[in-house]
Simulated scan of single mutants.
Amino acid sequence: MDNEDADLILLDRVEKVFEVRRRTGFLRAERRQVRAVDSLSFAVRRGEMVGYIGPNGAGKSTTVKMLTGILTPSGGRLRVAGIDPSRERTRLARRIGVVFGQRTTLWWDLPLIDSYRLMHRMYRIPDGRYRENLDRCVELLDLGDLLDVPVRQLSLGQRMRGDIAAALLHDPEVLYLDEPTIGLDVISKARVREFLRDLNAERGTTVLLTTHDLTDIEQLCRRVMVIDHGRLVYDGSPAGLHEVGESERTLVVDLERELPPIEAEPARVVKVEGPRQWLAFPASESAAPLVARIAARYPLVDLSVREPDIEAVISRMYAGKAVS
């Protein structure tokens, strides 16, 4: 693992162990070690958009914190753009952008534009480059009417778009996104996804995306890595993940009237309540042909597709075959 011109992110047998103290009695405490990341190795090439997923407590956030230099690995080798994050955190900060869905990097009581002006100075961004990047983000993320609004008055979706713009003002080579669409409405999610696709295509920005929304992964990433108990358990395409995990989408069909269970291979009816029926079908299959067949044969009022939950996909991976 030594091709740092092509591989922007490199982890080689990285570990992170925390020591936890637990009270066992009066004036007595027990110390034990918790291995959050366990001999983790992978490489991300320049320009890739990679989904990095797993259940809560799997080690995702710990990995990202090591990649940004917030945490120091307990063992192994880690490099981002050829830099050891924990040793040269300030130098690395100029080359990375970070967006945490549940936490903001913006100044809470200041108008949005003032946060951007402060970042302009903090990162020492050349004036021309700052104006160009700001104008581009404002236009594509629809922030024009929000620049003079204090951050605390923004909705979650507005703040998220504001945070993404803030992370990109200094033209980072790599962008870490932690739940960038959490709590957003459908329109805001679509806008954020389109912006990230354009950013990657036009500027070649490398993106590492952690999310619980599999639609984010499927629409943005050609590669997905699954981590569980600190270990990498899958590295491949999103379609391959569904095949390995044997995951299923759910098609919710509202009919004009009560009818016997719908027959439409490869879907199967799993629940019926009056005129509403729930059908499960393999997540690796396209929903379009299935919907077309049902619409041609049954009196439809409405239908919707529900994506599988990441935890459900991973639990099926373990319940079924071993991961290859």
Rank of each mutant, 00 (worst) to 15 (best):
V244T: 11
M122V: 14
D198Y: 08
G25R: 06
G320C: 14
I70T: 14
L112D: 04
L67D: 05
L184W: 00
G82H: 08
R13A: 10
G128R: 12
V17Y: 14
E218H: 04
Q158I: 05
L232K: 12
R103A: 13
K321Q: 13
L154G: 04
E48C: 00
I294Q: 01
E132N: 08
F42Q: 10
S237I: 02
V151F: 04
R316D: 10
L177E: 09
Y123A: 11
S247I: 03
L209P: 12
H242W: 02
L196C: 04
L10A: 05
S41F: 07
L300G: 03
R203S: 13
A264L: 02
L118S: 11
Q102F: 11
E132W: 07
V14D: 00
P282W: 07
A264H: 02
L67M: 08
I294N: 00
R31W: 10
L232N: 02
M119C: 09
R46F: 00
I125N: 03
R131D: 12
V20G: 13
P172W: 08
G101K: 11
A292G: 05
R231N: 00
R249A: 08
K189S: 09
T62W: 03
D228P: 00
E256L: 12
Y116S: 02
V14E: 02
M122K: 07
E243F: 02
L71Q: 09
L67Q: 06
S304K: 07
R306K: 13
S247V: 02
C221I: 02
L209T: 09
M122I: 15
W108G: 05
D127E: 14
V272M: 15
S286P: 12
S324K: 13
F42V: 10
L220G: 02
Y52W: 06
Y130I: 08
E256C: 11
D254A: 15
A93Q: 07
H212D: 08
E248Q: 15
E19G: 08
P126E: 12
R103D: 07
V186K: 01
L106C: 07
R121W: 09
L208E: 11
A167N: 06
G25E: 09
S315L: 15
R121M: 13
G274D: 10
G240L: 05
E218Y: 01
E258G: 13
I125L: 04
G51R: 06
V192K: 01
V207S: 12
A264N: 03
I294R: 01
D302P: 04
S237D: 04
N3R: 09
E132G: 05
L143C: 07
G157D: 08
D135R: 10
E243R: 15
V99H: 14
V138H: 00
H212I: 08
A296E: 09
M119P: 03
L196Y: 04
E173T: 03
V323T: 13
D171A: 12
C137K: 00
H242S: 03
